[in-house]
Computed example of a mutant assay.
Amino acid sequence: MPEKGCLPNEFSFGILVRGYCRFGLANKGLELLDLMRSSGIFPNRIFLT
């Protein structure tokens, strides 16, 4: 995303994490969640539902 000039936020990360999990790639979703947190972006209530 940053290469395209788009800064990720909790909503864009959430969409990607949910997509990975829905397609059976939970480990990739968890890796992305770790990247999200290490980037200083934290899940919000909507992300967790």
Rank of each mutant, 00 (worst) to 15 (best):
L16Y: 09
L30F: 03
L32S: 11
R45L: 13
G19E: 14
L25K: 02
I46V: 08
V17I: 15
I46Y: 09
F23E: 11
F13S: 07
G24M: 01
I41F: 10
R22H: 01
K28D: 13
K4F: 11
I46P: 02
R45S: 03
S39T: 11
E31S: 02
E3G: 08
F23M: 08
R37Y: 11
L48D: 01
G24I: 04
F11G: 05
E3R: 12
L35C: 11
L48R: 01
F47K: 04
E31G: 08
R45M: 14
I46C: 06
I41H: 05
S38R: 14
M36H: 05
T49N: 11
E3H: 13
C21G: 01
R45K: 15
G40D: 02
S39H: 12
C21N: 02
G40K: 10
P43M: 01
M1Y: 14
L30K: 02
N27T: 00
R45P: 00
F13Y: 15
P43L: 01
S39G: 06
G19Q: 07
Y20F: 13
M1P: 11
G40V: 12
I15K: 03
K4C: 04
L25I: 03
S39N: 13
F11Y: 14
F23N: 12
P8N: 06
G14M: 10
R22N: 10
K28L: 12
K4N: 12
G29Y: 00
E31I: 07
I41L: 14
G40M: 10
L48F: 04
V17M: 09
P2M: 15
G40I: 01
C6S: 14
D34H: 09
L7K: 14
L25S: 04
E31K: 07
I46Q: 07
G29P: 02
M36C: 10
R22Y: 06
F47H: 10
L33Y: 08
N44T: 07
A26N: 00
S38M: 13
F47T: 06
L33F: 10
D34G: 03
F11W: 11
S39V: 09
T49F: 01
F23A: 03
L32P: 07
N27L: 02
V17C: 01
G14C: 04
L16N: 07
R18V: 00
N27F: 02
M1W: 13
I46T: 03
K28A: 08
G5F: 04
P2Y: 15
G24H: 00
S12L: 15
P8Q: 14
L33A: 04
L25T: 01
S39M: 13
G29Q: 02
M1C: 13
S39Q: 13
R37F: 05
F42Y: 15
N9T: 12
N9D: 15
I41C: 09
